[in-house]
Amino acid sequence: MADVAWIESVLSGAVQAGTVYLLASLGEVYAERSGILNLGLEGMMILGVAVSFIFTNALGHGAALLVTMLVGGLIALILAFMAVSLRLNQIVVGLALTLFGLGLSGFITSAEIRKGILLSLNPNLSEAALVTQQAPKLPNIAIPVLSDIPLIGEPLFNQNILVYLSYILAIVMWFVLFRTRFGLSLRSVGENPAMADAMGVNVYLMRYIATVIGGMLGALAGAYLFIGYQPFWQEGMTQGRGFISLALVILATWSPLRAILGAYLFGGVEVLQFRLQLLGVGAQTPQFLLMLPYLVTIATLTLLSFEGVKKRIGVPAALATPYSRE
């Protein structure tokens, strides 16, 4: 029986760690399907962490989640304006936004400035709330019956609300993308924008919408990372998870449903790393274990580049290509 409990806790850990990747890559699937590569995802994610940290302490979880998504959407709007309307290089714009997000998150969370923001949001905060590096974690909600299923019940159905939201989003976003007119337009804009334009689809609008959805979910992934998973602030704590999510989108072959598997795979790698540390592997020097997610990402990207595989996965043809009618 001890083994079952162990497997359950590993699976549960993989889901918890993987949800960060899932939320971020779901949004990025939409952005890339419309032809926009969002290299600013890492910046939107870390900003999501910082904003949810501050707003949870000032106004509670609900307000924090709303504001986080708003901020992510706003940053994505800058990306959309520069990449879609001004037709600038998406790699460079995205990178600049990531640097901006990293800087801004460090700035607003630094002691003095954070204190000022917290007090202006909620003057009644206690001294402890002004200096804490933590925030209350989202509670787990066990779903009756489903959470009693052996082995997978606990990992899948005794989690917090954002994990459940990620399940629903994956299914709904898959349905919208492949079974609705809107989804067809979105995909056509990323495959052949000139054709889509001729058919009466507003290419710019679709790309704006998809990019903003991507930014909102990227920031939400950051909020989840903090209040749903590791509610202890550290500067730059996303540690490349936004970039890894970009690689995951390729692994998921731009499908919201397949993103689930990829996300939990990478969540599993993260958990494995902790478990091995607990077993005493690399107790003195855990750095090689910490390298695992990055090494696995490079290995994954390489495997996906083998000729036979590459032909099958079908990258959106107009990815990272600006569109103009000229």
Binding site: R87, L88, N89, L95, L99, G103, G106, F107, I113, E235
Partner: peptide, 22 residues
């Protein structure tokens, strides 16, 4: 002020240089 103030400044210069390309 945190060192991040400089990072913000750097990234804003970056964003505006890119926009200048247009």
């Amino acid at each position: 002020l945190p060192f991040a103030a400089v990072q913000i400044f750097q990234s804003i210069i970056f964003l505006f240089i890119i926009a200048g390309e247009f």
